[in-house]
Design a protein around this nucleic acid. Structure first.
Length: 643
DNA sequence: CTAGGGTTAG
């Protein structure tokens, strides 16, 4: 509709005033006056209510009717073209401003700067700013600073802020709110902290919006301790404060803290909203806390948030990651409009639970539906392929990603494909693929190769992968343990010694592996060899009985080979998932879901143990293996719980 | 009569 405003540069503006009224816009005749004031009032109302398109149409009608816009007119229409991100209309309006001699009005100048920034034309905004006779207006600085920041140029914003202070122009809350959100990476943390100090000094932190903004800044710099410190110092927290903290914890993987804070919120009777629930559900997904997730779903269902797409996606993700694929699928199928995120969540869910065939089927269906895939959904589908051993399929997807969609695979994709090739025993191809990577491979990529070397007992390549990986992640204990296990299998005591020495030199210690069992909303945690639980005696007794029963049942693994008990004689070596299972069997009624969650890669022996036990006792176990890819970075390998 | 701002999913 605003097409008519896209005038060519050379269009004679004044001619617009005198075109004949009756031509196109007969409706405009209902409103004929040559003074701008009534039009301005009307424009203000439209702009105030977000009816920007209508405002631009009205402006056109204003010109048609022969009224002359004035300095009061332009801020409204400039804001409209800014909000709709219409750079051509914006430039056209700038021409109008000049023709009507309004270019020296501060209100108009600020609106122009803001308009150019929101149309991503910061160089034009800067030009308007530079041409101002005296640049002493806080609002102009504010507009340009937030413009630079929102276009990803935090440093320019910061430079302007410094200039402003040098010149003695006062800054205010809006300046800070425009600048601080640009501080998004830990390399800018010190700038963010100095801004924080400055705000404390001038008392601006007492403004809740500023405090929220600084809090978010710390979250984005991944500095959760500082975020929490600030949070605790805010006397009257708003819902946004709570949400910022909760989603901050969720994004930084501190799921336990999310649930803690959510609980605190409930105690203080702060009413959560959709944003809160998205964070809480993401934490539930990470912890496998399906029960709490279910309670959240009940709350959502009985509220007006029922149709919120963000929440639907979060629910799909939560159920899928907790292993309740049936429930995730129902929610997914019921969604009238599935977004890329919905597809990613359900595909990823099937993928991590080994149902790769369903995952790839869904992916192909998504493509048929005409949804444009992005890098993340390719991570999901490649991951699904590697879990399900769909080697060729996975390689095809990598190719499709590059060729058909022009997406550049990143480390995460390569670590999936290296894993895929590695599991299939194609170690040499995996190594070559890493060499061909455009970007430097990260630890996860070499780690995937190292993992593959363990499966296929390739000591030589394992050493190469290990050397690369410890260079990138020298403190990740998991890789040392992995290499040590490779040496163990190869009977290389010299190798084992070397790794242990290295770990001692670097003062690295393996954290004990742990598992949780969730029951009636409570989580029970077990570390390897745990004897601290009051039911320890019963647990170990049951465990012994189970392992006896197991041998009665033949004790054969998937390949039909006899299972050798790898447990060391020391009781400390009892892996945590076994303890969690025994505890679960002691404390739940038949029929209840049993959930065991590992923080790390479950070892093959435990994996087959869980499978066999679940058949013997006819109960459902869901084991989550959280080590793959990006999770591996902070995780450790549990294959050697008795270390 | 007029300009500048904060929290959300994989």
């Amino acid at each position: 509709m605003t097409k008519h405003l896209h005038l060519h540069k050379n269009t004679k503006f004044l001619s617009l005033f005198h075109t004949n009224k009756s031509a196109i816009f007969t409706k405009a005749s209902s409103f004929t006056t040559s003074t701008a004031t009534p039009w301005n009032t009307h424009l203000r109302n439209l702009s105030k209510h977000g009816q920007y398109n209508e405002a631009l149409i009205l402006y056109r009608q204003m010109l048609q009717s022969g009224a002359t816009p004035n300095a009061f007119t332009f801020p409204f229409v400039l804001k409209s073209s800014a909000s709709l991100s219409l750079p051509i209309t914006g430039k056209q309006l700038h021409c109008h401003v000049i023709k009507l001699g309004c270019e020296s009005e501060p209100f108009v100048q600020t609106a122009l700067i803001s308009m150019y920034c929101r149309c991503k034309l910061t160089e034009f905004a800067q030009k308007v700013f530079d041409e101002m006779p005296q640049r002493n207006l806080t609002v102009c600085y504010n507009a340009l600073i937030s413009g630079y920041v929102q276009n990803g140029n935090f440093l320019n914003g910061f430079l302007l802020f410094s200039e402003m202070r040098l010149r003695g122009v006062l800054f205010n809350a809006v300046t800070v709110l425009g600048l601080v959100p640009g501080c998004t990476a830990s390399r800018y943390l010190w700038l963010g902290m100095s801004l924080h100090c400055l705000n404390v000094k001038c008392g601006l932190v007492n403004d809740l919006a500023i405090a929220n903004c600084l809090l978010t800044m710390y979250v984005r710099c991944a500095s959760m301790e500082l975020a929490r410190k600030l949070f605790d110092h805010i006397p009257e927290k708003g819902l946004i404060t709570w949400n910022a903290m909760i989603s901050g914890y969720a994004q930084n993987g501190l799921a336990g803290e999310v649930l803690e804070l959510y609980h605190e919120m409930e105690l203080l009777q702060v009413n959560p909203d959709a944003v809160t629930f998205v964070g809480v559900l993401s934490a539930c997904a990470n912890l496998g806390a399906q029960k709490i997730g279910f309670e959240v779903e009940e709350k959502i269902r009985s509220s007006c948030m029922r149709w919120n797409v963000f929440l639907k996606n979060a629910l799909i993700n939560m159920y899928a990651r907790c292993g309740n694929l049936a429930k995730a699928r129902i929610i997914f199928d019921e969604m009238p409009e599935k977004s890329l995120v919905s597809w990613t969540a359900i595909i990823g869910g099937y993928g991590i639970h080994g149902l790769g065939n369903i995952a790839v089927e869904l992916f192909d269906k998504m493509i048929e539906t005409g949804i444009q895939p992005d890098g993340t959904v390719f991570v999901s589908v490649l991951n699904a392929c590697s879990h399900a051993g769909l080697t060729e399929r996975g390689l095809n997807y990598l190719d499709l990603m590059k060729r058909e969609y022009g997406l550049k695979p990143c480390s995460e994709h390569y670590s999936c494909v290296v894993d895929l090739l590695g599991r299939a025993g194609r170690l040499e191809e995996a190594r070559k693929l890493i060499e061909l990577m455009e970007d430097e491979p990260d630890g996860a990529v070499w780690g995937a190769l190292l993992g593959a070397c363990k499966i296929h007992k390739n000591v030589e390549l394992a050493e190469l992968a290990f050397n690369k990986v410890v260079e990138l992640e020298p403190t990740n204990v998991g890789y040392y343990v992995l290499l040590s296990n490779i040496y163990t299998e190869a009977n290389s005591s010299e190798g084992i010694l070397r790794v242990r020495l290295m770990m001692r030199e670097r003062k690295l210690k393996k954290d004990p592996g742990y598992s949780y069992f969730e029951c009636k909303g409570k989580t029970y945690l077990f570390v390897a060899g745990d004897r601290s639980h009051p039911q320890t005696k019963e647990i170990y007794k049951l465990l012994n009985r189970l392992e006896d029963t197991e041998s009665e049942y033949g004790g054969a693994n998937r390949n039909g080979q006899e299972v050798i008990n790898h447990e060391p004689p020391n009781i400390i070596g009892v892996h945590s998932e076994r303890l969690a299972i025994a505890f679960a069997l002691l404390n739940t009624e038949i029929g209840a879901d049993i959930l065991v969650i590992k923080n790390l890669r479950i070892c093959n022996e435990c994996h087959s143990f869980v499978k066999r036990i679940s058949k013997i006792v006819d109960r459902l176990f869901v084991v989550r293996d959280a080590t793959r890819f990006h999770h591996f970075r902070n995780g450790t390998c549990s294959c050697n719980d008795y270390w």
